[in-house]
Structures are given as structure tokens and as C-alpha cells.
């Protein structure tokens, strides 16, 4: 099972994999063009830029202009990849993304690096903790957060085949690889990465590896916890969520994102409508980030395996007390 090997696996930055994969895809697809806003060294689009300088456009520090330009390129049939930090890709250019890209359903791939608080020392101004919420809210937009390097490679390959706007969040830091080398991403499908019957943890990004660690810890206490990698936040895999709710009776969501509007609320809306069971959202509790080392911030904001473990115990308790109550009725 993927969970056991977490501590032994290698660490890879998803942004590195994005850059390499994009440069490779540029060979086979002449229609791919890449835009960046003066952060190509950080987003790793500089690998593509070196290889295909004529298909790379550095727009300078002007994210809104970059998104509009990407829309224009797509309108003429290109497959533009537009990259910058997640906070600027989603926040600074939100209405350009909505109006110029998503509304006409143009084929623009926004790959945003430095998502979440693991940005670290730069602090709150650079830590995107609302990007999934605001991108999810836009009709026509697909939202993906790969959990590791293996998945990132597959995601980038797959979104080129899809015709429409996509927002992909990658990260600054190096994350553990949790998926097998031959893993293939399917848009809109979650994946069970660990089986269990007592509760389900649904996670995205780095939190998938933390969820697996939490599940391993809980196993020592005799609890069988299912873990789902929900890399497509939108459209979300309703079927898998309902199945998990029915079979395990309790759900914890984990995201390196605000608990408002992100994965947790996406899952909660399905659970509430289809099969209400106790739930808990592990995520950033409606607070801004701050400067600090990534590891310190994960602890500070309650995103560590032990925080997930606590949440799981809490929902299991709730679901048991509900079961007892229904038995008594």
C-alpha cells in the first residue's frame, strides 16, 4: 500500500515536474505556447523558454495582461500555458480569467506555482490560501491539485488533451512521492490510495501524504482508515464521495488551503446533499498566512498528520454516537 512507503520515498517539487513535462510536451505539440509574468525561474517555465524561445512570452510583471493575452492565443487555436505564483494567477487576474478565459471556455491552462502556505518565508502576501475557492467558483473552470511529482507529470499530459480552461496548482516545496510510477491521472476522478472501513480522509496536494501518515498512525490503534487523493477539485468525483460516506460513515477533508470554499466545502456539499455523515475539515481556519519555514507553518496552522489523526477520531466518535442514537430510536 502507498501509505507504508511514505517515509522512504523521495521528495520532488511538483513545479519542477511541471517545467520538465511542459518542455517535453513542447516537442510533440507545436500548438503549445507558454506565458509567464517574470517568475519563469520559479514556476519552471524557463525550461520550456530555453528550448522553444519563439513559443515563450515573458509578459513582465503583469498578470492581468498575461491572462488576456493567453485568451487571445487560445482564440486563434494555440494551447497557452500561463504561469505565475498561485496568488497572482488566481487573485490578481481573477476577473480576466473569468471574463476572457472561462466565460468563452477558451483552451487556456493556468499552472500556478507556490500554492498554499508552504511558500514559507515570503509570508502572507505570497501565500495563496483562497485560490481553489475562487477558481472553483467560476463556471467552466476545471481545478486540479496534484498530490506529488508522479501525478503532476500525468496531469500536465492529460490537460493538453482536454479542450477548455484548467487551473492547476503546484507547489514550491519538495513533497513526498506517494503514487506509483505507472499512475495515470483521470480528470474528475478521485483515487483510493489506502483502503479502510472506519472513516475516510479525502485530501489534496501535500495533504495526501500527511493523510497517509495519519492513517498509518491510526492503524496502530486498530482503526482502518480509507484515504482518497481528490486531485480534481472540480468537477468533483461525487460518486466516490458518496460511496465513501456510505461505506465508512465519517469523512475528514485535508487541504493546504482555507477551509472556506476549498476541497472541504466541495466535499461537504456533496455529502450534505447525497448522504449526510459527520465531517471535519482540516485546513487553514479562515486566517492569513505569515512568514516562517514551511514545516513550521504546517505545524502552526494545524496541517500535520497528528492534526488529521485528531480530526479522524473526532468524526468517528460523532458517527458512533449517531449510530447509538438511531439504534435507541
Amino acid at each position: 500500500m502507498a501509505g507504508e512507503s511514505v517515509t522512504m520515498t523521495k521528495l520532488i517539487a511538483t513545479r519542477d515536474v511541471y517545467g520538465e513535462t511542459l518542455a517535453r510536451l513542447g516537442e510533440s505539440s507545436q500548438e503549445i505556447v507558454v506565458l509567464d509574468a517574470d517568475l519563469s525561474g520559479s514556476t519552471k517555465t524557463n525550461i520550456f523558454a530555453k528550448k522553444f524561445p519563439e513559443r515563450f512570452f515573458n509578459m513582465g510583471v503583469s498578470e492581468a495582461d498575461m491572462m488576456g493575452t493567453a485568451a487571445g492565443l487560445a482564440a486563434v487555436g494555440k494551447i497557452p500555458f500561463a504561469s505565475t505564483f498561485a496568488i497572482f494567477a488566481s487573485g490578481r487576474a481573477w476577473e480576466q480569467v473569468r471574463q476572457s478565459i472561462a466565460y468563452p471556455k477558451l483552451n487556456v491552462k493556468i499552472v500556478a506555482s507556490h500554492g498554499g502556505i508552504t511558500v514559507g518565508e515570503d509570508g502572507a502576501s505570497h501565500q495563496a490560501i483562497e485560490d481553489i475557492a475562487i477558481m472553483r467558483a467560476i463556471p467552466n473552470m476545471t481545478v486540479i491539485v496534484p498530490c506529488d511529482g508522479v501525478e503532476t507529470r500525468s496531469v500536465i499530459q492529460e490537460i493538453v488533451k482536454y479542450n477548455g480552461p484548467v487551473y492547476v496548482r503546484v507547489a514550491r516545496g519538495k513533497f513526498p512521492v506517494v503514487l506509483p510510477e505507472d499512475y495515470k491521472f483521470t480528470m474528475g476522478k478521485g483515487m483510493v490510495v489506502r483502503d479502510g472501513k472506519d472513516a475516510t480522509i479525502i485530501a489534496m496536494g501535500l495533504m495526501v501524504s500527511h493523510a497517509l501518515e495519519a492513517a498509518a498512525m491510526l492503524e496502530k490503534e486498530g482503526l482502518q482508515i480509507q484515504v482518497i487523493n481528490m486531485s480534481t477539485i472540480k468537477p468533483i468525483d461525487r460518486e466516490l464521495i458518496v460511496k465513501a460516506a456510505k461505506e465508512t460513515g465519517a469523512i475528514v477533508t485535508c487541504e493546504e488551503h482555507s477551509i472556506i470554499g476549498g476541497l472541504g466545502e466541495a466535499v461537504a456539499s456533496v455529502v450534505a446533499e447525497e448522504c449526510p455523515v459527520p465531517m471535519k475539515r482540516v485546513g487553514i481556519q479562515d486566517k492569513f498566512g505569515q512568514s516562517g519555514l514551511a514545516e513550521e507553518l504546517l505545524v502552526h496552522y494545524g496541517l500535520m498528520p497528528k492534526d488529521i489523526e485528531k480530526a479522524v477520531k473526532n468524526v468517528i466518535e460523532k458517527s458512533q454516537s449517531i449510530r447509538v442514537k438511531t439504534l435507541l430510536l
Binding site: E121, D122, G123, A124, S125, H126, Q290, S291, G292, L293, E296, L297, H300
Partner: peptide, 13 residues
């Protein structure tokens, strides 16, 4: 500077 809890955040605050 830039340390957790510092009055000196990575960017002016």
C-alpha cells in the same frame, strides 16, 4: 526577519 512570529514579515505588514 522572516522567522515565525516575527514583527518583521517577508513583506511589509
Amino acid at each position: 526577519l522572516r522567522k515565525l512570529g516575527s514583527i518583521l514579515q517577508g513583506h511589509p505588514d
